[in-house]
Design a protein around this nucleic acid. Sequence first.
DNA 1: ATGAAAGCGCTAACAC
DNA 2: GTGTTAGCGCTTTCAT
Lengths: 343, 343
Amino acid sequence: MSTTDEPERTRTRVSMADVAQHAGVSSQTVSRVSNGLTNVDATTRDRVLASMRTLGYRPNSAARALKSGRFRTIGIIMSTLETFGNMQTLSAIAMEAARHNYSVTLLPLEAPTLGQVSGAYHRLSEQAVDGVIIVFEVHRLDETEFTLPPGLPVVVVDSNAGPEFTVVDNDQALGARQATRHLLDLGHRSVFHIAGPPISFAATHRLEAWRQVLVEAGVEPPEPLFGDWTTDSGYQHGLTLGRRDDVTAIFTANDQMALGAMRALHELGRRIPVDVSVVGFDDLEEAASFWPPLTTVHQDFATIGRLSLQKLLAKVVRELAPDKTIVPTELVVRASTGPAPRG
Amino acid sequence: MSTTDEPERTRTRVSMADVAQHAGVSSQTVSRVSNGLTNVDATTRDRVLASMRTLGYRPNSAARALKSGRFRTIGIIMSTLETFGNMQTLSAIAMEAARHNYSVTLLPLEAPTLGQVSGAYHRLSEQAVDGVIIVFEVHRLDETEFTLPPGLPVVVVDSNAGPEFTVVDNDQALGARQATRHLLDLGHRSVFHIAGPPISFAATHRLEAWRQVLVEAGVEPPEPLFGDWTTDSGYQHGLTLGRRDDVTAIFTANDQMALGAMRALHELGRRIPVDVSVVGFDDLEEAASFWPPLTTVHQDFATIGRLSLQKLLAKVVRELAPDKTIVPTELVVRASTGPAPRG
DNA sequence: ATGAAAGCGCTAACAC
DNA sequence: GTGTTAGCGCTTTCAT
C-alpha cells in the first residue's frame, strides 16, 4: 500500500543538461543562449537553439527562482471576485503585471474575515510571490489585532487600513459629495440615502460625506436606510421611500441598489426622474442602459489596479515608507436625475 | 555603471539551515518537522517549531518545487476578466483550486486572438504551473493551425476546441432551445433573435438552436440581428425590432443586449411583456431587478469552474483521454415574457 | 530518532 | 567564446 495519493506521471522534463549534451556544448552555454546573452558564437547559438526546439526545452522557473530569489510573481488576496469593482481592479492589476513581466497568483477568500486574510497571507508567504496586494472591502482593517507578519511587501486596496499600510483607494467621500450636491443643485429639498452595510468602510465613508453635504446645506439629514449592496435590498428600501410623497431624490451607495430602487419606483408608478431622481455609485457597464439610464458616480478601478501594482513593484525593489493614494471619482449625469418637482 | 535595473533589496530569507543551527539539529530534522512527518521526538519537534517561530521561517516553495517537480499551481488563460461568465468561472476555479491546495496563476490576454493564447501558453509553460485552463470564447479554436506544444495538461472552457482537447462547457444549444420554445409555447407566432457576434462559438450555437426550434415548429426563421454583446448593440437592434408591429417576441443572446433592447422598447412605448416579450441569456445577478425582471437562461458557471479544475487536476496526475463535459442550462421565467398579444 | 551526503536545474564567478 | 566549479534551499536515500 503506497502512501502516494498521486501516482507518478512521467512527464519527462527536458533540462538544460539534456540540451547541452544534444548540442555538444556545456550547460553554461545553453544558459547563455537561453538568457539571450551576446557572448556566444552565432553558429553555436543556432545549434543550441535547434537542440532546444528539437527537445522541446522549457526553462525551469523553480530553479531560476531558487537562484535569483525572485519569482516575478505577485499575490492578490481578494475577498470576492464577484463584484464589479473587484473584477475591474483585478483585471487592471493583471494587465499591468503582465506589462512588467510579472505573473499574478490569485487567492480568493472563502469568507470576508480578517482571519481569512491572515490565513491567505500566510499561505501566500510560503508561495512563490514577491509581494502581495490585498483587496479587502471591510471596515477598519487595523481595528482588531490584525497585523501581517513582516517579510512580504504589501499594498492594500479599497480599505481603511492603518497608517502602517500602503493604501490605494477611490475617493469615496468625493463621489458621495458629487452625488448629493448634484441632487441639491437640481433643487431637491432633501436627499434620501440607501447606504451600504455599516461593516463596509466604503459605505461608511459615502454615508458620512452625504450627511455632511446635507448639513452644510442646512438640511436635516433623514434617517439613512441600510442595504447590503444587493438589488433586492435596494428594491425593499425603494418600496419604503417610494411610498413617501416627500421623497424626491434618492442617493444609493451602489448601482445595484439603485437598480432595485428604480424597479420599486416603477412598480409604485412614480416616474423617474419627473417624480423622483435617483443617483447610484460605481458606474456599472449596464448603468447607461438601465431604465432610465442611471446618473451615477464613476470609480476609476483601472487606475486603482495600475497604481497598486506599481506601488507594490516599487516596494519589491526597495523598502518604501507607507503612503496613501486617493484616486478621484467622477459624476456621470444621465437620465435618472432631473429638477425637483414643483411642490 | 551597473546593469541591474533593480537595486538590491536585502530581505534576508530565513533558510532551513538557519533554523537547524538555531535549534541545534540538522536541517533534515527541520525538514521533517516542516513536513509534519511523525518520526521526530516531541521535544525536538517543539524546539524546532520554536526556532521556526522565533526566526520567522517560511519554506521556500521554489526549492520545494525544484525537488518535487510539482508546483501545486495551475495557470488560467482568459481572454477577458470583464464578463460576468468569465468572472464567475474564474472565481469557481480559484475556490476549487484552494480546496485542493493549489494556487492559481492568472494570465490575461491583451486581445482575444489565438496568437495571444499561444503566447500566453508559452509564457505559462515556462512558469511554475502544473497545468493550464484556457477560457476562450471564440469560434473554432481548432480551425487555424492552432496547436499547443505538448508538455502541460490543458482543459478548455467555453470554446469549440477540437477533439484533441478536454473541454468543459455550458449547453449553449439547450439554453437557446429552452428560450425559444418558451416563447413559442406562449403563443407567439415567431421569435426574433438578437445574436452575439459570429466569431463567438457560443453565439453561433445559440443562433443555430434558435433557428432549429423555429424550423421544427414550422416557422420561417426571420433574419437574425447580430450584436456584439453590449447593451448598446441590444439597444440599436431593439429600436429596429420595436418599430415593427409583427415583432412580439425577442430572444437575445445575452442579458446585456436584452437590457438594451428593453430600454429601446420602453422608449418606443411598447409594453413588456404585454406587447413584446423578451428573453435573455446568462442570468446576471441584476437580471431579476431589470424592469421588468428578465426571463433568461441561467448558466451554471460555478459548476463549469469546479469541473474544469477537477478535470485538470486529474490530468496533472495521470495521462487522460480528452473528453467533453456539457453542463445543462436552466430557463428562469420572470416578468419580461407573457402570452402573445391577440392579433 | 537523527544525521550526512547527494542532487533537483539553473546561473554567477572564474578560468582558459 | 566557452567550460568548470560551486551553490541557491530543499528532500530523498542511506547510515547510524
